[in-house]
Design a binder for these strands. Structure first.
Lengths: 158, 158
DNA sequence: GAAATAAATTTGCATAATACAACTATTTTA
DNA sequence: TAAAATAGTTGTATTATGCAAATTTATTTC
């Protein structure tokens, strides 16, 4: 557990997370390059692919983007023939989005790539550390979500 | 270690990292809001503050941004009275960047905020898990940096 | 039930971040 | 010293983004 010489501290945590941030950024860039669309489009496509069928409004909440931003992103997906809009018959204010055949194919390709990536990553973690690593990120998510409030609170009050 | 019911797997890792990415994004947004400048400016300012004195070229490598992008970011810092440029007397091709008094004050304020943030985060991690958490991110950084190659390789060959 | 209110979406506008290419100035190399 | 390399800046274009205004549809209120 690397506890031989010294006790870890908050500074170490900060530095580790800083490095991790960079690596995540590279992974994103990689993903974008591989999936032949912009990162924003890729994120939207993956999210729609997962839930199959979603309103623009819901999607913008999930991706934490403004409706207008997402409206345009969806536009691009539609123009690229990857997604289509349709009116929600129950409430015609809503525009639902779903993937086209082509979009589904892209979605599956991206999912496959991502799964392979994480599978590889997982396998590269020493076997006896795997549970520990996942547990640790879970802990970090937990404490982070408790501490992160000021910015999001304001946005989410409704 | 959360191993009671099931073995963790690559899917869990993917989901955990996805969540973590979002939390990091919020932290960034928070930081930007608190430090009263754009995120790009904040990153540049912090980096210059750390090393005190750096050429634009070096800085762009550290932040992994194009020289032109950084030139403009530095411009904004200069306009805001936070940084200043000066010629490197040894090699007049180089423009060095350093923080002004005001810039240093901002830098220290941001550092303080960030340190407090990570101190709090660290304290919120159960004591017996702290070393484990840091060790885990270290492991993730290690394996990630081995797997991430295709995109960066191309850029860094020089 | 008509008017007011609310909600979802789109479009107009503005801004930030970014990269590439072309250009200038300086230094190194052959 | 002429050519090549390096650092930086500026012109141009693109993407991502949000806010505000406008439009359409649904819900609430009186």
């Amino acid at each position: 557990m690397m506890k031989i010489n010294k006790q870890n501290n908050a500074q170490d945590l900060r530095e580790m997370i800083r490095l991790f941030e960079r690596i995540i950024g590279m992974a994103d860039e990689n993903q974008m390059t591989c999936c032949h669309m912009t990162l924003a489009q890729c994120h939207a496509l993956v999210e729609v692919g997962r839930v199959k069928d979603i309103s623009l409004n819901q999607l913008s909440r999930i991706l934490e983007l403004d409706n207008s931003t997402l409206s345009r992103t969806v536009n691009n997906l539609v123009i690229s023939g990857l997604a289509e809009r349709y009116e929600d018959p129950n409430d015609r204010r809503y525009i639902k989005i779903k993937l086209t055949e082509q979009g589904m194919m892209n979605f599956h390709a991206i999912e496959k790539t991502m799964n392979t990536y994480y599978e590889t990553l997982f396998q590269m973690i020493p076997e006896e550390k795997r549970d520990q690593v996942i547990d640790s990120i879970r802990i970090l998510n937990e404490v982070s979500s408790k501490i992160q409030c000021c910015v999001k609170e304001k946005k989410n009050e409704e």
